[in-house]
Design a protein around this nucleic acid. Structure first.
Lengths: 361, 361
DNA sequence: GTTCCGGGGGAAACCGGTTACTGAGGTGTT
DNA sequence: AACACCTCAGTAACCGGTTTCCCCCGGAAC
């Protein structure tokens, strides 16, 4: 018994098995399944019968190689566990399947090496596009290497999309869909400053991380626009996790830093910081004001509800795939490298109080 | 100029392009890249040179069809946005890539139709396994249909894995990796009862949802074990979102339900409920005690920190892929349908207080 | 100087599909 | 009755790889 088994439904059957069972050629089976080519009614039913009997499904890889496959799209993120990443991932996935694409996903845990490797895999998969979600370390080598894979992808007719990550060097064949990271931070910090605060503790991320950098820039710019020089002592590095916020806050309290407000780089960080503040017996916003960034769903369930910056993360993800796919369609003329910048807005809740100064300082 | 361009790096080149450029046959290129077959040093360098010049990467689909591809594994979840789903997804993804598999992902937003369609797509992709993550509506038709796709997958040498979802009818060729949903709820509820509470409001999920059912069973069983008959009025349906918790809690308060503690079906629901309680001026746990389920990272940042049930979600995801893949390996002998049940434990924080009754009730 | 051996590489078959080309058979027109 | 035309199905080439089979050629052994 060869592997060309004609058993009823048992095992992976090929189009030839179906053809044999229906007493026709493989081409005919393909045509019946494919749709448009004229096939007589009796043949069609015989073929469909065989297909059903064998529970046949055409091999998608073979179809793909023949040029009629479901297109695929790869996307990479740091860690699906982060709420804002999850939101973007959701947007990407929803829009991709809406447009009939499959999603290959990979998380890197911040490992640039791994990211590059995955992109290479996507190139091998002939993915229609690769979407890089979330910030990254921004070293010159990194930009150069990412630029190179962007070139490789472009040469293969694919496309690299940066989603929520700043552009590479100009000229790199990438599409960029990001939000106004710095502007959001600026507006948020301005809000805190407008309530009278002057010593605002900034709980940041990794110094080389682009998202952290953008938010810190906004923090600094808002200060300077008000004519207050931010104290460098008040800027703490960390990462974007809840635990980092908790630890940083505790340490700040222990070493006796002086501040009346805290601006956390993310809502997660803010959540950890809030817990540390509570544990220290400090009231928010009575004693200390606190703001976050991202407006994750949970932000409003913290106590007090967290004032933060809303970022249209899911929309960002959707736009990333739409951009990638549209680019692929109209490639011909002079497909300029798109760069979309979505707006953010601060959502004021209950976590920042007005600071009444005894005198006009 | 035909499409067989031999340009330097520009565009998708085939193995034949590389062969032509290196002045060898396609077979030789394949052998150089493949590894083991003896190839002379000079030929090897010539081929590698051509590969580099053309920036050639073998088409993964073609390799797959020839039987030497990177295996793929599909996984389906309700909504990546839910923290516990995200945790499982992370586990699945990490373990899959650790074992050298690619991940095709799809979220269904609870649409069973869509779930079935995706599984069919995975069958066409010849996925090594398909992992269904999270609960589902448990109707007889659903079990029957899922059983059928499980059969189809099994016939194709693939495998369906249910992760965090109860088994199908016995005999269905599926692997199950779940946690003790009911047991966790039982322990949690027992804890609340042990602090003196007798009227515990249960904020549940959709009645047909298996996860919701399991937790409710635990709630009921704990009551009965204590000899207290739970008041049906205290069981509210909803879904597993924060908003649902908020709304249900408000409504419960408005209609004047009497209770001294709240057991939310998930931490998300608990978070919404907590905010509603705060807004109503009720202290937790002073006036009302509150517990959740899932132990999502945020649970400890609520105020008060939430007592809840810890579920090893990430481990669950990892185990799901390991189970699936091991099954595929040892298929021969008498690959019994595995069923793993992971334990949970309640983590006591600050959200439930002791109820002092005026007299022994 | 033959024969034998084995290393290295090419031709061709194969994986599982699609599709351009070809041709058989039936119908309609003059 | 002859011819054109249309419908439908089969043959074969192709997609981009891998692998089997076979041959050629150089060196060692006799």
């Amino acid at each position: 018994m060869t592997r060309k088994s004609a058993d009823g439904g048992g095992g992976r059957s090929t189009i030839r098995d179906v053809a044999a069972r229906a007493g026709v050629s493989a081409a005919t089976v393909s045509r019946v399944l494919g749709g448009v080519y004229p096939v007589s009614a009796t043949t069609r039913t015989r073929v469909l019968r065989a297909v059903r009997d064998l529970d046949y499904v055409a091999d998608a890889r073979a179809k793909a190689i023949a040029g009629v496959g479901t297109p695929t799209l790869g996307f990479v993120l740091d860690d699906i566990t982060g709420p804002s990443f999850a939101l973007m991932a959701h947007g990407v996935e929803r829009e991709a399947t809406r447009l009939g694409h499959l999603c290959l996903v990979c998380s890197t845990d911040g490992d640039a090496e791994h990211e590059l490797a995955f992109i290479e895999t996507m190139r091998a998969q002939r993915a229609a596009a690769v979407i890089l979600v979330g910030g990254s370390a921004d070293t010159p080598e990194y930009r150069a290497r990412t630029g190179r894979v962007a070139d490789a992808l472009a040469a293969a007719g694919s496309r690299l999309v940066l989603c929520g990550r700043p552009p590479l060097d100009p000229g790199a064949p990438v599409s960029v869909v990001e939000y106004d990271n710095e502007g959001g931070a600026y507006a948020l910090c301005a809000h805190v400053l407008s309530r009278g605060h002057r010593r605002i503790l900034y709980l940041g991320g990794k110094p080389e991380h682009t998202t952290a950098q953008g938010r810190e820039r906004g923090y600094l710019a808002a200060h300077r626009a008000r004519g207050v020089e931010p104290d460098p002592v008040l800027r703490l590095a960390g990462d974007f996790t809840r635990d980092s916020g908790y630890r940083s806050m505790r340490r700040a309290l222990e070493v006796g830093l002086e501040f009346t407000a805290v601006m956390a780089a993310t809502d997660m960080v803010a959540a950890g910081a809030l817990t540390a503040l509570h544990e220290a017996g400090l009231a928010v916003p009575g004693d200390i004001s606190l703001v976050g960034y991202d407006d994750i769903p949970f932000a409003r369930d913290l106590h007090p509800a967290l004032t933060t910056v809303h970022v249209p993360y899911e929309e960002l993800g959707r736009l990333a795939v739409r951009t990638a796919l549209e680019w692929g369609r109209k490639r011909g003329p002079e497909a300029s490298d798109e760069h979309l910048l979505l707006g953010t807005h601060v959502v004021v809740r209950d976590s920042v109080g007005a600071l009444v100064t005894s005198s006009a300082g």
